[in-house]
Computed example of a mutant assay.
Amino acid sequence: MLSHEQNKTVSSIASGHTYDWVTQRAWVEINLAALANNIVEIRKLLQPQTKFMAVVKADAYGHGAVSVARTALKSGANCLGVATVPEGIQLREAGIKVPILILGATNTPEQVKAIVENKLEPTICSAKQALIFSDVLETINFDSTLTVHLKLDTGMSRLGTNWQDCGEFVQLVASLPHLNIGSVYSHLATADSPDKTVMDRQHRRFDSAIATIKNIGIEIPCLHLANSAGTLSHNSLHYDMVRVGLAIYGFYPSVHLQDTVDLQPVLQVKARVTHVKTIEKGAGVSYGHKFIASKKMRIAVVGIGYADGIPRNLSNNMQVLIGGVKVPQIGAITMDQIMLDVSSISDVQENEIVTILGNEGNEKITAEDWAHKLNTISWEILCSFKHRLPRINIM
Score class of each variant (00 low, 15 high):
2 L>S: 04
4 H>F: 07
21 W>M: 15
46 L>F: 04
52 F>H: 08
66 V>Q: 06
77 A>R: 02
84 T>A: 09
86 P>S: 08
90 Q>D: 10
94 A>L: 03
96 I>H: 03
99 P>G: 08
101 L>D: 02
103 L>A: 07
104 G>A: 08
109 P>W: 02
112 V>P: 10
115 I>Y: 09
116 V>W: 03
117 E>L: 14
117 E>T: 15
119 K>V: 05
119 K>Y: 06
135 D>W: 00
138 E>D: 13
138 E>C: 04
140 I>E: 01
151 K>C: 13
155 G>D: 00
156 M>C: 02
163 W>H: 11
169 F>V: 10
173 V>A: 02
177 P>D: 13
183 S>G: 14
184 V>S: 11
185 Y>M: 14
191 A>R: 01
196 K>V: 06
197 T>A: 11
199 M>S: 15
201 R>V: 07
209 A>L: 11
217 G>Q: 14
217 G>R: 13
218 I>W: 05
220 I>H: 11
220 I>V: 15
226 A>N: 12
231 T>E: 03
235 N>C: 06
236 S>G: 04
244 V>A: 00
245 G>D: 05
246 L>R: 00
252 Y>I: 07
253 P>N: 01
256 H>S: 08
257 L>E: 08
260 T>K: 15
262 D>F: 09
271 A>R: 05
271 A>E: 06
276 V>L: 12
276 V>W: 10
278 T>R: 12
278 T>Y: 09
285 V>W: 03
285 V>Y: 03
286 S>M: 11
293 A>D: 05
301 V>W: 11
302 V>F: 12
306 Y>P: 05
309 G>P: 09
311 P>D: 05
313 N>C: 07
315 S>R: 05
316 N>M: 07
318 M>A: 15
320 V>Q: 01
320 V>S: 02
321 L>N: 00
322 I>E: 07
325 V>F: 07
325 V>Q: 12
326 K>G: 02
331 G>I: 02
333 I>Y: 04
333 I>A: 04
336 D>S: 15
336 D>R: 14
343 S>Y: 08
347 D>V: 06
350 E>H: 12
356 I>K: 04
358 G>P: 09
369 D>N: 15
370 W>F: 15
370 W>R: 11
374 L>V: 04
384 S>E: 09
384 S>Y: 01
388 R>A: 02
390 P>M: 03
